[in-house]
Design a protein around this nucleic acid. Structure first.
Lengths: 165, 165
DNA sequence: GATTGCTGGTTGCGATCTGCAACCACTCCG
DNA sequence: CGGAGTGGTTGCAGATCGCAACCAGCAATC
């Protein structure tokens, strides 16, 4: 954070999320709705180490992408939430997912969400971001608004079930 | 490259371009039309070191994002070109640029391109990618097709000139 | 035909980051 | 009180990074 190699938007973005783990943490919070340290640690597909996770969470809080708050239900628990800048990474993850799906050896189960995000386009991303604002920032939204998260998760689980048969 | 922590598209993408330099090299090739080692080395806003540049170029070639070819005009010269997967990173860079422009302390000159890419939307990106296919892959395209690169570069230079006054 | 400069790199080395495993203080539940 | 669960911290070996210095081959210059 001290550094600032140049004022280029791409460069500055990379200085914040240009490493192998930060965006995966955001991804799990966004698509997996994981909010606690242990959830992020043990449910990670890639097996992040606890010290790396602690470091990344701290950095992301400092950078303003996520927030950290005590959980009233348990005095030692901590809830991590996406802040607005973190929520707005949805299009970035969608673009990255589309690219990876096209050019890299992805697994079908894990790429179904990327496919749906790509097909849904910006309109779907906006709905998803509104849903995240509700989940993470407590902003109410109109009754009957579709749950993109549930849609994505169902599709993922269906693929998992299909792969097992 | 040997690793493959998971089959998630986002994770796999990060394993290829998830570091602080790879995407900057692609950016300079894409928006600055830099094709030679020295160009990439000395014109880099961020001051990449030569060993890092050499390493990243090699990795990007191995990953299939760019190609390396001898330059007929000078037996020791080498030309680096974007391959199709590298060209298709345009939407990723556009998304990353939009995000950075919104949430980070960018400089005006360097963010004008991100702004134009954002305003132009996917239609502009497609034209730009077609132009890159012509420049890097030699694929002809219809006469009279607009040059997005020239447009972006002019806007950038105009901003530089404006900042000096 | 020696010099000078440009070409794409390589080498050495210290600092930093990564990844694994073990450990810790605290809190809630029974 | 005992045990499971909480968010982490600590130690340490190995990999990676980043800077600076250096290098051999080629081409134009003097």
């Amino acid at each position: 954070m001290a550094e600032k190699r140049s004022g280029c938007p791409i460069n500055l973005s990379l200085e914040v999320i240009g490493d192998k783990w930060s965006l995966l943490v955001i991804r799990d919070m966004t698509f997996g709705n994981r909010r606690h340290f242990r959830e992020l640690l043990t449910s990670s597909e890639e097996g992040i180490a606890s010290n790396i996770l602690a470091d990344r969470l701290q950095r992301l809080v400092e950078a303003g992408l996520i927030t950290r708050a005590p959980d009233p239900s348990h005095k030692q628990k901590v809830v991590y939430s996406l802040a607005e800048p973190g929520i707005q990474l949805v299009p970035v993850m969608a673009a990255l997912g589309s690219w990876g799906r096209r050019h890299l050896p992805v697994s079908r189960e894990l790429s179904i969400r990327a496919e749906l995000l790509e097909r849904g386009g910006p309109a779907l991303w906006e709905d998803f971001m509104d849903e995240l604002r509700e989940l993470h920032l407590g902003k109410a939204r109109p009754d009957g608004a579709r749950s993109v998260l549930a849609h994505l998760t169902e599709a993922y689980l269906a693929e998992v079930a299909r792969a097992e048969n």
